[in-house]
C-alpha cells in the first residue's frame, strides 16, 4: 500500500518538476508546482512527518505558490518578451551537469545506506513516551519549544525582516 503510494507520488513529483523547469511560460511552471507540492506532501505523510506535510501544503501550496502567481500577474510578461529560452548547447551542457549530479547523489545514496539504517528506517517507533505519535504536532512542539526556542524566535525575526524588506522594496519609488 505505502509502496504504491510512494511510487505514484514520486512519479508525480519528478514529472511535474520536469515540467516546472521546462515550461517556457512561467504561468505553467507555477501551475505545475501544485501537483509537485501534492506529491511532496504525500511522501512526507508516508515518512510519518504529518505536521511537516500539513505545513508544506499550507506554506508552499497556499502562500508561496500564490505569491509567485501574483507576481507573474503583476509584471504581466508579454509573450514576445519570453524569448527563446534554451540554446541547445547550454541546454545540453546543463542537462549533462544536472544528470551527473543526480547520478553521483544516487550513487552516494546507494553506497551510504546500510542495511542497519534500512532496518531502523522501517521499524521506527511511532509513539513517544507521553503518548504522542512521531511527527505529530505534539511530538514536534516539545523539542521545538524546549530545545530549539532561540532558532524558532530567530526564524520569526527573519520572517518579519523579510516582510518589511519586501514591502519596502516593492514600494513605488525606490
Amino acid at each position: 500500500m505505502s509502496d504504491l503510494a510512494f511510487i505514484v507520488a514520486a512519479v508525480v513529483c519528478v514529472l511535474s518538476a520536469g515540467l516546472i523547469v521546462s515550461r517556457k511560460n512561467p504561468v505553467y511552471s507555477v501551475v505545475f508546482m501544485l501537483p509537485f507540492f501534492l506529491g511532496m506532501t504525500t511522501i512526507f505523510v508516508l515518512l510519518n512527518a504529518t505536521f511537516l506535510a500539513s505545513i508544506q501544503m499550507i506554506v508552499y501550496g497556499g502562500a508561496i505558490l500564490v505569491v509567485f502567481l501574483f507576481v507573474i500577474m503583476l509584471i504581466n510578461l508579454r509573450p514576445e518578451e519570453l524569448r527563446e529560452d534554451f540554446s541547445m548547447l547550454s541546454w545540453f551542457i546543463s542537462a549533462l551537469a544536472a544528470g551527473l549530479l543526480a547520478a553521483t547523489m544516487a550513487l552516494f545514496a546507494n553506497r551510504g545506506t546500510t542495511n542497519d539504517m534500512e532496518v531502523k528506517f522501517a521499524s521506527a517507533i511511532a509513539t513517544r513516551e507521553h503518548g504522542a505519535i512521531f511527527g505529530s504536532i505534539e511530538s514536534i512542539a516539545y523539542p521545538l519549544f524546549e530545545k530549539q526556542m532561540i532558532p524558532f524566535e530567530l526564524a520569526s525575526v527573519l520572517i518579519v525582516v523579510a516582510t518589511l524588506g519586501a514591502v519596502l522594496l516593492s514600494k513605488k519609488r525606490v
Partner: peptide, 20 residues
C-alpha cells in the same frame, strides 16, 4: 547569472565525483 550558477554546479559535481 546562469554561468556562475553553472560554475557552482559543475564545481559541486566535480567535488562529488572526486569524493566518490
Amino acid at each position: 547569472m546562469n554561468t556562475y550558477a553553472f560554475a557552482i554546479l559543475s564545481g559541486t559535481v566535480a567535488f562529488l565525483i572526486y569524493l566518490l
